[in-house]
Structures are given as structure tokens and as C-alpha cells.
Design a protein around this nucleic acid. Structure first.
Lengths: 237, 237
DNA sequence: GTCACGACCTGAATC
DNA sequence: AGATTCAGGTCGTGA
């Protein structure tokens, strides 16, 4: 199936889904990662975010700059998509008592769902052109990390880890999300710039999106030949 | 001394006090009780009130019904008289996060004052004809409870536990209370109905109060022959 | 610095 | 089995 086909079927769940999923992969940039401490996965139900990264990527006093998330009367909520497209929301705040930035509410559910243990690594990414779109991922302790430094130019080897979409995307992501449904979001962007994303089949393509021409290599847009789930040995960047 | 004597001396502190105290006993109805958990007497400084009882007896959204207490800018305050006539005020509120009703401010002082431990029981009562008048009492872990069910017809065996008035009533109860001074309150009621409470000495008497004739048995109005303090074996209802 | 207290959160148990 | 209850926690503020 060609890119054109995907583009035309942008409102078709299954196809645009897959398409979008890989777009997301291509346009993700790594922010930072953290090796989880026993406290991060224990009964404290919180993840301490290293201050340098917190202040750089998840600014709390968004009076001046980026609004990274929804700030409600219940405090700041950060939404992250995981490797399956599922949306995770965490309360994010600064604890004066410990001078630290933490993810609290929602974190313990993530830890349980992913069976995270001390020493496992969580990493954070965001969409290259939409800083509001955040991603979270994890790998087991001792498993291979990124080959390249964090925050560098994205050269993505799609893997089952990220592309293994095990559940229908809309089903898990849709109505409870504070963000627009990702398909609506996508369509909306395309509509705003009065463009149809151009994806040319082949080993190297150009996608024009958000007013930017992007060179995409084959392994970026297309998933690898059916990775059957996470095997723990893939390289992500 | 006869009931008439008490009635005539309604404005005499010591005597009318005693009289009133026993009236209160007769006209109290039990609401509910709770066996205190370690948290209820620990550092959390709060008492969780079982939701069913909270919503039934201490309604917070008093838009429709009884106003049980004063609602200030500092939240709702409930005032309770204890066994000695002392007035205890507690902040009463609903915690959205845990969906529970709690007594907070003031509760820790009560726990300390009464030396309450986990397993001890606190119970709540109100005046049969004045739902604004609330009472709080406690008994030690393992001590005899009510013989009859909560909220049933009052058959009160006065005991040292409730009748042991150890401190002058007005001194402890008066100025800080949001309720009228109980003597003023009493006099006011009597005045309103243009009656003098009639208490006939003997083993069975009739008291007309608030327009209602009440049959009172000897052990209701008069204390038992000098209980010399709480011995833990009295039955209250 | 400590403590009481307000608000918020979670897991276990229960309905 | 999803929702509710509540015991046992957390942090932040102010006295």
C-alpha cells in the first residue's frame, strides 16, 4: 500500500492508525531517561524526575514558555503515549519539601501495568513538531539502550517495541484523553496548513507536514516485516 | 428535692444544671458509634465517619434539610457536648479524593483529652427534639455497649459515665459555643411554649416539654444511688 | 523545627 | 467485574 493510500484513508481507523503510529516514531525526539530506583517502583507511588530534565522539558511555571500539558484545578497533568499508543496521564508537580519534581497520581498504575522493577529504565520523548505530544517507554534492566545520545537527530529503527500495536489505537486512546483524538489532531493539522501529506513509496520519501519537508527513509515509515512483539534486543535510535 | 424545686431554680446554675443534664440524658437518641481504628487515634488527626451515617445525620449540603451546625468560611463546624457537658467543636468535611467524611480540626485534642486508643468506641447522639444539639461519648475497648440497637427508643440508665459532671457546666460550655448557652436555650424553649416543665417526684413521672408529655422512670431522671465514677460495667440504653 | 491541619492519593476489601 | 468504601498514607501551609 502506498503512502497516498494511507493519506487518502486518513479517516480510516486501522490504516491511518498504522500510518500515524509510524509518523510518530519518525518525529519523536528523545528527552531523557531514568534508571528506576526502588522508591520509583515502590510504595511511594511517585517518580522523581531529575531536576535538570524536569525544568528543561516539563516546565511547571509555564508563564513564559511552552505549555506542556493541561493545567487544571487539580494541578498539572502530563499525558504520555506509550509504545502501544495507550495514553497515560500523570500528575506532575514540584515538592518543596524535597526540592524535587515528581510524577505522582497515575504513576503507580503505570509501574504495575508494565511490571517495572528497580533498575528498569523509563525514557521520555516528545513529538518533534508538537511539544505537547509526549511519549513514554521503558526497557528492562540491563537491556540495550540507545546507541546514540539522547536528544540527537532521530535515526529511528522501528522495532516491535514501539511499532507493536497490540490493541486498537482508538479504543485505548480516545475518549478519556484530554488531548484531541490523535486522528482528529492529525486531520486538523493537515487541514490547517491546507496540505495533504505527500508520502512517496520507495526507500526514501518526502513528507511535507506542518510546512516542513521531511526526508524519510523506508524503515522509518514502514514497519519492519512483522515483529511479533517485544523481544528485548532491539535498538531504538 | 422535688422536680418542682428544680424547675423553680431553673436559673440557678448548680441545680438547674443537674436538672438539665438529666433532661438531656432522657432526650438523647443514639445516632451511631464507631470503633476507632489506629488511624482515627493516630497522627492523621482525623476521624473517618462512615458514609452512611455521615450522610444521614450530618448532612453537608444542607440546602434541603436540617442545618446541623454552623457553616462558616472555615468550613462546617459541628459542636458536641461530652459526658461532662463540655463542648467540643470539630471541623467536618468531605474529602473528594477518598470519598469520605471526616472530622478534622479539633479531633486530635479530643483524642488526647480522653486518652482514646484504637479499639475504643466513640458514639454520637442528638437531642430528640433539637437536632442541633449533638452529643459525643466514648467507652473503652471491650466494655459493654448498648443492649439495644442504635437509634431506637431511649431507655436510659444514667451512669457515672454520663452523669459525672466534673467541671462547672457554664464555665466550659459558654462563650466559645456557637450554640446559645444551654441555660438560655432551655429557658427560651420553656418561655416559648409558656410552660413550666412539670416533674413529679416518684418512680414514674411526667415531664411536659416542647409540647410533649413524656413518661420518665425513676432511673431516667434521677442518677443511680451515687455511682462513684465510671466502672465500665454500666449499660447505657 | 515541630505540629496540626487541609487537601490529596492509593490499595485492599467489599459490595 | 466494575464501583464504592475507607484505612492508612502523602505533601504543603501556617501557627
Amino acid at each position: 500500500m502506498s503512502g497516498h493510500h494511507y493519506a487518502r484513508d486518513i479517516h480510516h481507523n486501522t490504516l491511518s492508525l498504522h500510518h500515524h503510529q509510524n509518523d510518530a516514531l519518525a518525529y519523536r525526539e528523545s528527552l531523557f531517561e531514568k534508571s528506576l530506583t526502588p522508591s520509583d517502583v515502590g510504595k511511594l507511588n511517585r517518580l522523581v524526575i531529575p531536576k535538570q530534565h524536569a525544568e528543561k522539558y516539563f516546565p511547571l511555571n509555564s508563564g513564559g514558555g511552552d505549555v506542556t500539558a493541561e493545567t487544571t484545578e487539580k494541578g498539572m497533568l502530563l499525558s504520555f503515549e506509550d509504545e502501544s499508543g495507550k495514553c497515560w496521564k500523570f500528575r506532575y508537580s514540584y515538592w518543596n519539601s524535597s526540592q524535587s519534581y515528581v510524577l505522582t497520581k497515575g504513576w503507580s498504575k503505570y509501574v504495575k501495568d508494565k511490571h517495572l522493577d528497580a533498575g528498569d529504565v523509563v525514557f521520555f520523548q516528545r513529538h518533534r513538531f508538537d511539544f505537547h505530544r509526549l511519549f513514554i517507554g521503558r526497557r528492562r534492566r540491563g537491556e540495550a539502550s540507545s546507541l546514540s545520545a539522547v536528544s540527537q537527530e532521530a535515526r529511528v529503527n522501528t522495532t516491535a517495541y514501539w511499532s507493536g500495536l497490540t490493541t486498537p489505537y482508538r479504543q485505548e486512546h480516545a475518549s478519556t484523553s484530554s488531548y484531541p483524538n490523535i486522528h482528529q489532531e492529525y486531520s486538523q493539522y493537515v487541514g490547517e496548513v491546507a496540505e495533504t501529506p505527500t508520502v512517496v513509496a520507495g526507500s526514501s520519501r518526502t513528507v511535507r507536514l506542518f510546512g516542513v519537508n521531511l526526508e524519510c527513509h523506508g524503515d522509518v515509515v514502514e514497519p519492519p516485516p512483522c515483529s511479533d512483539g517485544y523481544n528485548g534486543q532491539h535498538i531504538y535510535y
